[in-house]
Simulated scan of single mutants.
Amino acid sequence: MSAVKNVIKDNYNMMLLKDYLRTAIKDAGFSHVEISKTPTGTRVVLHVTRPGIVIGRKGSGIRDLTEKLEKDFGLKSPQIAVNEIAQPELTSSVMCNRLASLIERGTAFRRATMWTLQQIMNAGAMGVQITVSGKLRGDRSSFEKHSLGILPRAGHQATIVVDEDITHVPTAMGYIGIRIRIAKKERHIPEFELKGMSAAEIETRRIAKEKADAEEKARTESEQIKLDAEKIEQLDLMEEVEEKIK
């Protein structure tokens, strides 16, 4: 087999593996996986928001997952390590999955999008852009793009600062595509520095977020989605307020 075919085969297998992990450990808040070959086998690093769910009771989850990766995906002697994501709201893949789950539960896509935007910015992002496309309101396909903060869109800076991911969610009208781009402050370069927010305001926002997290700590991603959906229902969008005034 030629080198080109080997590359294609490896990329295809990686795609299948990511699709499997996104479903199999969904409640653990799966973000991405890193695979590297070692002299003793294959090292697999899973990046998740809740490592305990992947590990399982007395390591049962790791053992089952190891057998699955070796048998169905052909990984030689997989050695699985689990890495916890410190700030899920600043990880585009995690937020894509949460937004997709909210829409799949029946939450209005615009409400879910506005909620996700606010959650990302409250976590300390420099900027965020969410694009939702598909049959959103009728038979014709359309898209909506919502942004907050500062987000480099092109050039070398964008590759350094921006974390991006894309996912799709099935609905009764067809698939809806979700794309989230997050600019992180810790990676910013001086010309993209977010101005106008004092250190006191940033600290106040951080304390408020920590207090909210302490009050309602979800054990799984499914519980987190349920809590978010309940909070979203209490929001009033501007267009709904206008309708009430009329």
Rank of each mutant, 00 (worst) to 15 (best):
R111I: 02
I150S: 11
E242Q: 10
M1D: 07
V241F: 14
I62D: 01
A212Y: 06
H32V: 06
Q118C: 07
A218E: 05
K217Q: 14
E240H: 03
V82Y: 01
H188Y: 09
T220Q: 03
R98E: 07
T171E: 05
S31W: 06
V54H: 00
T49W: 04
K9I: 11
E34G: 08
A154C: 07
A123R: 04
S92A: 15
K76H: 11
K209A: 13
E191G: 04
T107V: 15
K9C: 00
E216V: 15
N97Y: 03
G61N: 02
G124L: 08
Q157L: 13
I189M: 09
A229Y: 01
H168G: 06
A172N: 11
I207W: 01
R57F: 04
E144T: 12
R110H: 04
L237T: 12
I120W: 04
L17N: 07
R57E: 13
R98C: 07
E203M: 13
T66K: 09
A108W: 02
I176L: 15
R63N: 09
E89M: 03
T91S: 06
S198I: 05
K226Q: 14
V128A: 09
S222D: 11
G127D: 06
E67I: 09
A24N: 13
Q87R: 08
T91P: 00
L194S: 11
V82Q: 08
R140K: 13
M114Y: 13
K68E: 12
K211L: 15
A86N: 11
E240A: 01
P88G: 10
E243H: 11
G149C: 03
K231C: 05
E239C: 04
A229N: 04
K184W: 05
E216D: 05
F30H: 12
E84Y: 08
D27W: 06
G29N: 00
I225F: 03
A158F: 02
E210C: 12
D228G: 07
H156W: 06
E191K: 12
N6Q: 12
D27N: 14
V4W: 05
A172W: 03
L21R: 00
K195G: 10
L102S: 00
A158S: 13
M1C: 07
P39Q: 08
R43D: 15
E215R: 10
M1H: 14
S147M: 08
A81W: 09
V82N: 00
E240V: 00
D19F: 01
T159E: 14
G177C: 01
R111M: 15
A229Q: 03
E221V: 14
A81D: 12
A200M: 05
V94K: 03
K195R: 13
W115Q: 10
S198H: 04
P39F: 09
E216S: 15
C96R: 07
Q87N: 13
I182G: 02
R63A: 14
I176A: 03
V33A: 03
G61Q: 10
G56T: 02
M114W: 06
T204R: 14
K226L: 11
S147Y: 12
Q157W: 04
K71G: 03
E104M: 05
Q79T: 07
Q118T: 08
R205F: 05
S222C: 07
D72C: 12
E240S: 03
S31M: 00
E215S: 13
I35P: 01
V169L: 08
T107E: 12
T38R: 11
L69P: 06
K37V: 02
T107W: 06
